[in-house]
Design a protein around this nucleic acid. Sequence first.
RNA 1: GGUCCCGUAGCCGAGUGGUUAGGCAACGGAUUGCAAAUCCGUUUACCCCAGUUCGAUUCUGGGCGGGACCUCCA
Length: 479
Amino acid sequence: MPIRLHNSLTRSLQELQPLVPGHVTMYHCGPTVYSSPHIGNFRSFLFADVLRRFVEDQGLRTTQVMNVTDVGHLTLDDVEGGEDKMEAASRKTGMTAWDIAKKYEAEFHDCQRKLHFRLPHHMPRATEFVPQMGRIIDDLLQKGVAYQTNGNVYFEVAKFAEYGKLSGKVLDELESGARVAVNEEKKDPRDFALWKVDPKHQMQWDAPFRGGVRGFPGWHIECSAMSMHYLGPQIDIHTGGEDNMFPHHECEIAQTEAHTHKQFVSIWMHARHLLVDGKKMSKSVGNFFTVEDVLAKGYSGLELRYTLIRVQYRQSLNFTLAGLDEARAAIGRVQQCRQKLVRVRDGLDRAGPDDMAAATSSANERFTAVLSDDLNVSEALAVVFDFVGACNKAAASVVGAKAALAAFARFEDVLGCFGGEPKADVTSDAPAELLALLPLRKAAKQAKDFATADRIRDQVAAAGWKIVDTASGARLEKA
RNA sequence: GGUCCCGUAGCCGAGUGGUUAGGCAACGGAUUGCAAAUCCGUUUACCCCAGUUCGAUUCUGGGCGGGACCUCCA
């Protein structure tokens, strides 16, 4: 089934047709590592993760690149007075810019693990691609689409006729809407920096292009350089948050296409921002949650992942703590169902006659169809829960349980938000002293000594476990 | 001001020109010594006003409300 995705460039659905058949190249604008990653960052990155998983599920190979921005991203892009985010963080904390980058990049990777990412194939750092950026800058200068003033190099937007094709921004709007000081160095307010000179900047390189002055690279050029290095001049999919559309991606298109004279990206995809309690989450307002904030409240990475992917990426997602509780319950419903199937498959519970063939193939087909329609995760989850209902009603045979579990494994492989296959019985993990209580309770119940039976149950509960009574006897589960 | 998106039952959130989304919560039932867990069932919504139509929540126009980007931020 063809995968159709919404292309921001054309504002329409477009079939994914890889430039190299069977192999999809994806580039994701990754984190600027100047502070702890927050849940909004991860909405965007998780969307890309689910996209990659689904593409692979459909039998395509992927190569996925996510950059780490550790230099050049200014607090006010390309504007007089804009400060590099790394430098700003350094000034506030007293750490060097290099140490800041190291610290937060490590935190980012830690969050990726906690949120069950399938890691990108490459996660290059901007600071390690300065020579490659230099080659592009050099070419743009030679072509006359970039110019140098006081050592600073700017891309001349007027030389790229298609500037604005992604974001729809036109010159007049940008000029009239400008709320920032005009940079007199630039020929045009839209021109953006490829290279900056600032003796105070901690991160410095000799100019990697002819006739340049020691300095540091601008923000946008890194993505062009790293994308081209790993994926070639043309790629299939490029993603980012909606705020990246302008100026970042607009500038990437301009400098890359001016350099290669080829269409840079086939499909641009942008994730909508999330809201917190119905309001915009932003650093300046301070109403934001880092991933650690959420985990510190006792929620699991899986629960957070579920919460962040459950709404289709082009809809704004309203993040609430209540939503995390819902996620917990919803995941539990799926895992409970899978556990029952495991018990049938492993012979611990009695099998029925149903081979589950119709329900399983129907669920698989629907799952594929809804995700092929611009990655509609909301509907995909509905398919999963419909399947849970079908499994709960059916009396699965051993073969049926195997088939259903295979379907769940596939859903998990794509969404990654339910967890692995549950154990048939977690009683064996329970402390021996608690396990020893089960026969005592059974005896008490048989003797109609319910006071003792209930006391044992309370005792087990106090230890963080719960007694689950079933037809085949009681077992313990983690509360 | 410019560009764009959205407004669905208690909450979150799909989708559709006429037929049950799904999850959470609530309630009823099954089960249980009582519970827990689980299962079954119930709760019939689509901002307002016009228009198109045999019929609109779904299309068109207007209004109201919320949000996003243009500025920190994915």
